[in-house]
Design a protein around this nucleic acid. Structure first.
Lengths: 216, 216
DNA sequence: GTAATGTTTTACCAACCGGTCAAATTATCA
DNA sequence: TGATAATTTGACCGGTTGGTAAAACATTAC
């Protein structure tokens, strides 16, 4: 039989899992740096260290590879937001969210760039995910923030734009890494920049969301 | 004579300026949505409403088109930061900077995405500009902010990361427009989102940079 | 061992890509 | 007007791209 994996009922062989892993790892590399259209199967095969037809044995099309990658990565990408806890202390919840997002920008920049590329180019492959799971999760957390503001625990603000602000400021360090490094110059471009960013962003958001003395 | 424009001493004909304009306009459209590698000359020619060889008569290569576009756009892109005035009131300077950047995100999203694509993919064509003019300008404004902080006019903070935060939060509304709209949902996705964003960001940055009572 | 299945490779294709060329067309100006 | 230069087009080229076919090779199950 010659059925590529997608058609099979069960994941049988060890070799299959290994190879698929290998391919997705390479695909992440390539898609993250060139976007979908700018990436070629040959390139991915090269990085993965296998021949193009071999790669196409595991994923029948370029789209299938991209899709598999998105599916695998999207879920873990939303984890930090899921951990955002309604019961916790608002200030420390927001701080940990910022910290977690910054850590992801530092430790998984390719994942960040994969999405950035996709969204920048109009999200042709993930619009369903944006309108579905992502929006649902955000709407839920928006209510949490809104409740905090109503209870006088943080300043009144538009929760959607608060979330956008946290996303953009943190992911910036992954997506615009080259620019950040170039602007900071060589001496300031060590890994310390993430510490500096964390310090700055925590100050910004904590003070920016503080309740002025009179209130509450 | 059959010299394409680049080789000529003076820009002669009216038609030449018109066509180059037309081409760059189309190129902005295409490069902004697909990045350099993901864009094809045919696509640009299509959008510009002319044949591929005709387009190549004005710009000899795809790179030349991209280069011309970058050169034209980069300068105006930095204008808001240039206006950042050391003599002005810090809070209102920062507010107007945010407002100007948001207006650009609203009115010139393609320009924003052009750079975003470029930087995201490692800035292969503009690294010189980043390390040169951009860094110089930023360094200059960093000194301004630092002086304000030293004079007790705003809270102490890392000026580089302040600038990054303003860039990322504002450009987010151009670069990640699809996501912003999808998350906000249809009813909140009118042009009002820029007003809301402006309100939120001004509050965030003004309060976030306020001097606590004791100081100064 | 051997037969069945799973994996990899070689050779290939049609469409597309960036770019050239020469001829045809149009604009400019004496 | 006609000559000259500027512009536009269609045909084409070599290389790349996403993807296929089939056979060679490896692995596993009996």
């Amino acid at each position: 039989m010659v059925l590529p994996r997608a058609a099979r009922t069960q994941r049988r062989t060890r070799i299959q899992e290994e190879k698929e892993e290998q391919i997705l790892e390479a695909a992440l590399d390539v898609f993250a740096t060139h976007g979908f259209r700018g990436s070629t199967i040959d390139q991915i095969a090269d990085v993965a260290g296998m021949s193009k037809p071999n790669l196409l044995y595991y994923f029948r099309t370029k789209e299938a590879m991209h899709r598999a990658l998105i599916d695998r990565v999207l879920d873990s990408w939303l984890d930090p937001l899921r951990e955002f806890d309604a019961e916790g202390n608002p200030v420390s919840e927001i701080c940990s969210y910022i910290r977690r997002k910054l850590e992801m920008a530092r430790d998984f920049p390719r994942e960040s760039r994969l999405f950035a590329n996709e969204i920048l180019q109009g999200a042709p492959h993930i619009e369903d995910e944006l309108k579905g799971p992502l929006k649902t999760l955000v709407d839920e957390k928006v209510e949490v923030i809104r409740a905090w503001a109503k209870a006088g625990k943080i300043a009144k603000c538009d929760p959607y734009h608060l979330i956008f602000a946290i996303w953009s400021t943190t992911q910036h360090y992954a997506d615009f890494d080259v620019q950040v490094r170039d602007v900071l110059g060589e001496e300031r471009s060590g890994e310390g920049r993430f510490e500096d960013a964390a310090r700055f962003l925590e100050q910004l958001f904590v003070k920016g969301l503080e309740i002025k003395d009179g209130n509450a």
